[in-house]
Amino acid sequence: MNKTRTANDTENPEFVSGQMGIYNISASPLLAEALKPGATYSQVTLALEALLRLASKGLSGDTTAYAQYQSELLNLHLPGEPHTEPTRRWLASQVYLMEDNFAPALTEFNVLPVEQFREKVDAEIAARTRVKHPMSVHLFQGAPPRQDVRFFLKHHWIRSYNFYTLLAELAFHFEAIEDASVFYRNLYGEAGAEVAERSHPALLSHLMTYFDIPQRVDYSALHPLEKAYLNNRIRCVRHTDVAWGLALLYAIESVSCVNHRRIYELLQSLGVPEEASEFHRLHGTQDEIDTEEMWQLIAKLAPGESFQRMFMQSLARHFAINQAYFDMLWQEMQKQSNHNP
């Protein structure tokens, strides 16, 4: 089904302002019952039906339903009571199928030889890079005030601190150890190799401490478009078609070095100490190896038409959500600056 206008459309004033109206559909009470010990199949089914109705309306363009379904989906994704994990994962997987039904059709899709396919993928990523976004231009080519940098880093923490979980999720989809090892080697680095204190979340936490940014995320307070961004990352690495997860992680890793170098240079210009900047200094050099290893795995699967099609659909969805998310952050950053001259 091809939807030309969805809740990701940032021209919708309700999302730009963040003002949501009252919506009658609510899956929360039914989901709460479905996740209680001893819940019946009937209760789980009723919760799923309500959630899918909410998702369908949200994906059809209803911004309030979209916000609510993204909140419910994020709650299913977040760690909770162990006994609810199988049910939460199954409910989330059914939402993924609904989202698949609303995936826009690809324009001018053609199966390509692997070498040309990589050229197409890299060109698409280069064309949609965040470096060209107005917020990035402001931060990395202008003279941003400290409050804008802190705002950016706060949301960067939300995106980055648990990146390792995405690698772990995708690794489980590969039966052959030589394929899964691509992600395990990456995880080894994320975990700090032999020194836990050198783990990437630990290194990044030093920067959060320096800027006095809370390290505990209040997920309920996040903007719907930020929830959508986080949900899509989890959705892709859990998707039964590995093309979705590979496309997402390749898109993130392939631009990681340049993005982190720019952040490191920004921190240096502000006089941030080396200990607090180390996470970004490291990522400004080492992610190129991870990118190449990941591409070698992609190349093994890329000759198939289905793989290429799903891979490009995953990229298109990632960039659409990413654009809406960064537009929202840029608007919030400007609003904050206007209120605090």
Results as ranks from 00 to 15, higher is better:
Gly304Cys: 08
Ile234Pro: 00
Ala316Lys: 08
Trp295Asn: 01
Gly80Glu: 06
Gly142Asp: 03
Lys36Ile: 05
Val237Arg: 01
Phe151Lys: 01
Val242Phe: 02
Gly21Phe: 15
Ala168Cys: 00
Phe279Arg: 01
Leu301Ser: 05
Tyr69Pro: 08
His155Ile: 07
Phe151Gly: 00
Ile125Glu: 08
Thr165Asn: 13
Asp179Ile: 02
Gln19Leu: 15
Tyr219Trp: 13
Arg130Met: 14
Ile25Gly: 00
Gln215Lys: 13
Arg159Lys: 06
Ile234Ala: 04
His206Pro: 03
Tyr250Lys: 07
Leu222Arg: 04
Ala320Ile: 06
Pro145His: 06
Leu139Ala: 05
Leu153Asn: 03
Ser181Tyr: 09
Ile25Met: 08
Ala7Gly: 15
Thr129Trp: 04
Leu73Asn: 05
Thr285Gly: 04
Asp241Cys: 02
Tyr210Glu: 06
Leu267Arg: 05
Gly192Phe: 04
Trp157Gln: 02
Gly245Ala: 08
Ala193Lys: 11
His200Tyr: 14
Ala123Ser: 14
Glu305Tyr: 13
Leu112Trp: 03
Gln43Pro: 03
Asn186Pro: 07
Asn186Lys: 07
Glu169Pro: 07
Val95Tyr: 01
Phe211Leu: 10
Gln296Ile: 09
Leu167Gln: 06
Gln43Cys: 09
Val258Leu: 07
Val182Cys: 14
Asn12Gly: 01
Arg261Pro: 05
Val111Trp: 05
Asn259Ser: 08
Glu33Pro: 00
Gly61Cys: 08
Leu167Val: 10
His77Trp: 14
Tyr96Val: 09
Glu99Asp: 12
Lys132Pro: 00
Pro86Leu: 08
Ser199Ile: 01
Ile25Gln: 04
Ile321Tyr: 02
Val195Asn: 15
His260Val: 01
Glu293Gln: 15
Ser199Arg: 12
Phe311Cys: 02
Trp295Ser: 02
His156Ala: 02
Pro224Gln: 06
Ala299Val: 09
Asp122Met: 11
Tyr250Cys: 02
Ala127Glu: 11
Phe172Glu: 05
Ser17Cys: 10
Arg130Glu: 13
Glu278His: 14
Leu97Phe: 13
Arg281Met: 10
Val121Leu: 12
Arg53Asn: 14
Asn186Glu: 05
Arg150Val: 12
Asn12Lys: 11
Glu288His: 02
Lys57Pro: 02
Leu31Gly: 03
Gln286Thr: 12
Glu169Ala: 06
Leu97Pro: 00
Gly38Val: 10
Leu207Asn: 05
Val182Gln: 02
Asn186Ile: 05
Glu178Leu: 09
Leu249Pro: 01
Asp218Leu: 07
Glu85Ala: 11
Ala320Glu: 15
Gln323Gly: 04
Glu190Gly: 03
Glu292Ala: 10
Ser56Arg: 12
Leu297Asp: 03
Glu124Met: 11
Glu274Cys: 03
Ile22Trp: 15
Ser277Gly: 06
Thr4Asp: 14
His239Thr: 09
Ile252Val: 15
Met208Cys: 06
Asn232Ala: 10
Met310Thr: 07
Arg128Ile: 03
Thr209Asp: 15
Glu278Ser: 09
Glu124Trp: 09
Ala126Asn: 09
Ile177Glu: 15
Leu51Thr: 00
Met20Glu: 04
Ser56Gln: 11
